[in-house]
């Protein structure tokens, strides 16, 4: 006897659906797990890694800032000392070219040593502050008595040369002096002892036959450094003065040369611009 086919098929399909329905919760659980991991956990985990790196950087940055704040607070306790050191540093490297102060210092060094300053050539260019080049501009020649240079080399006003202090610009001055040997040595010592940082270059010394005198020509390079226009960012670290730097500043302090040498005032006004004095 044969069973009706339709009933058999219906029964079979019901069985299949029941079988699949039994798997549904498991499959649904897998799908939910995958969705949670993909849409929630994975992005949050990436954010956790990013936050960790950012926190590490921020922590290092805070530590550096704290160190900087500590250093500044230590210096704030002795602000007067820092101001004195600034005055000394400004003597060593003035904030502008200080051309006429330099000339006054050189003349003072010659006068106190007994050397006769024959000739002084300087071409500083612009005398405004914050000019870093020393070449250019019209020559300003100060010649009490014109004496030709000692050596056969023609006098030249070189351009901005790179010297030892490449970070600090300089003003070059060519000098010619006549004196006895002892006064010449004293003049050199006086120059190197100026509160302003100078270098003696291209020194030539020749004996004047029979007179016991020497004639010298030299180039004095006087350094200066303009004040910065603005401070660096707050994150940039501050450096403290080293022992060697403080010792050099104290040498200027001890000689009492903190105040800027003053130039004498002169009367102004004349009716004829071309009449000699």
């Amino acid at each position: 006897m044969s069973i009706p086919t339709l009933t058999t098929l219906k029964a079979d399909s019901n069985a299949e659906i029941s079988k699949l329905a039994a798997y549904a919760p498991s499959v649904g659980a897998f799908v939910v797990s995958f969705a949670v991991v993909f849409f929630i956990v994975w992005p949050k985990f990436s954010e956790v890694l990013r936050l960790r790196a950012a926190n590490s950087e921020l922590s290092a940055s805070v530590e550096l800032l704290a160190k900087k704040a500590d250093i500044l607070e230590v210096y704030a306790e002795d602000k007067d000392q820092l101001e004195v050191q600034l005055g000394a540093a400004d003597q060593m490297l003035p904030s502008d070219k200080g051309v006429f102060t330099l000339i006054a210092q050189i003349e003072g060094a010659a006068r106190s040593s007994g050397a006769l300053l024959n000739k002084l050539d300087i071409a500083p260019g612009s005398v405004n502050a914050n000019q870093s080049k020393s070449a250019g501009g019209a020559q300003a020649v100060v010649t009490p008595t014109s004496v030709p240079p000692v050596t056969g080399d023609p006098p030249t006003i070189p351009g901005a040369e790179t010297g030892v202090g490449q970070a600090a610009p300089k003003v070059q001055t060519k000098l010619s002096v006549t004196s006895d040997y002892k006064s010449f040595l004293q003049f050199i010592k006086n120059l190197l002892s100026l509160s302003r940082v100078v270098e003696v270059k291209d020194l030539s010394v020749a004996a004047a036959e029979g007179s016991g005198q020497v004639r010298a020509s030299l180039t004095v390079e006087a350094y200066w450094q303009a004040l910065p226009r603005e401070l660096s960012a707050i994150e940039s670290p501050v450096e403290t003065l080293t022992g060697e730097e403080e010792e050099k500043l104290s040498r200027v302090t001890d000689t009492g040369l903190i105040t800027t040498p003053t130039l004498p005032t002169v009367p102004l006004g004349r009716s004829d611009l071309f009449a000699p004095y």
């Binding site: 820092l82 501050v238 050099k248």
Partner: peptide, 23 residues
């Protein structure tokens, strides 16, 4: 204080280098 220190350090360091190297 930072302004004073930065300027002083800059000038002192440059001056110290020049003085150490000059003849």
């Amino acid at each position: 204080i930072e302004e004073l220190l930065v300027v002083t350090k800059s000038k002192a360091a440059a001056a110290s280098n020049i003085l150490d190297a000059r003849v």
